Simulated scan of single mutants.
Amino acid sequence: MSPPGPAAALCAAGLFALVAAHGPPHIEGPPPGHTGGFGEPTCATCHFGAPLNEPGAALQVVGLEGGYRPGQRHPVTVRFESFDMLSAGFQGAFRFEDGDRRGAGAGGIRPLDDRVTVVRGEGGDTEYVQHTRAGSAPTDGVAEWTFEWRAPDADAPVVLHLAANSGGGDDSPLDDLVYTLSITVPPRGR
């Protein structure tokens, strides 16, 4: 068997440069501002593999059905299921949907276990909830993250933007799948 030719070497070098330029996946959580909401990028900035929201996965939120009670605490679970997921990650943000506060952070977020953490975006106005290293390991193709959202003491719709990543578990940004979800959460009576 002969050694690889110049074309194969160039291809390998190009692939190495692509991975090096974008860095390894964010196993400890992505940088703030990658939910896909209000003009933000998504996890697809660093993870590649298929078009956004490729069929074959389900991203859902449990705990916000029927809206929010202003000023109250709401347990929220993000559930992400993908047919070939060996590692997983997510990031989400609650922001006012419209009006004078459009895009501003809405409420506060508190992790309930070591699978979730909260980071602040540039300027400190928006909190981002996201996975940790402990939260990046799915079980049988399912990842779940639970946290508490303290709703704002306001009477305005809030939008939750989420981006999630189904990874191959090989610490490479290649062959990863990225999904997004946007949910409007209206206020309901106190």
Rank of each mutant, 00 (worst) to 15 (best):
P157A: 12
T126V: 15
D153C: 10
V116R: 00
R95L: 08
E122A: 13
P111F: 06
A106Y: 05
G108L: 11
A154W: 04
P152W: 02
R115H: 12
V158A: 13
D113Y: 07
G123N: 04
V118G: 10
A154Y: 00
T146G: 08
V118A: 10
A134R: 11
T146D: 03
F147S: 08
G105F: 02
G107M: 04
R133F: 14
A143I: 11
V142M: 03
G108K: 09
A137H: 10
V119N: 00
S136E: 09
T146E: 13
Y128A: 14
D140R: 02
G123H: 06
A151N: 03
V119T: 12
H131P: 02
E97K: 13
G105P: 02
R101E: 12
T139M: 08
A134I: 11
T132N: 07
T132A: 09
W145N: 02
P111V: 07
W145F: 02
A154P: 06
T126G: 03
H131L: 09
T139R: 15
Q130L: 15
V116A: 10
Q130E: 15
R110S: 07
A134H: 08
P157K: 05
A104F: 06
D98K: 07
Q130M: 15
T146K: 14
G123A: 10
Q130G: 07
D153S: 11
Q130P: 10
R133H: 10
D114A: 12
T117E: 13
A156V: 13
Q130R: 15
R115Q: 14
V119I: 15
G124L: 08
V158F: 11
R102V: 10
G105N: 03
T126M: 02
G108H: 08
R115G: 05
D140N: 06
P111S: 05
R110K: 00
A106C: 02
P157T: 15
P138I: 05
E127G: 09
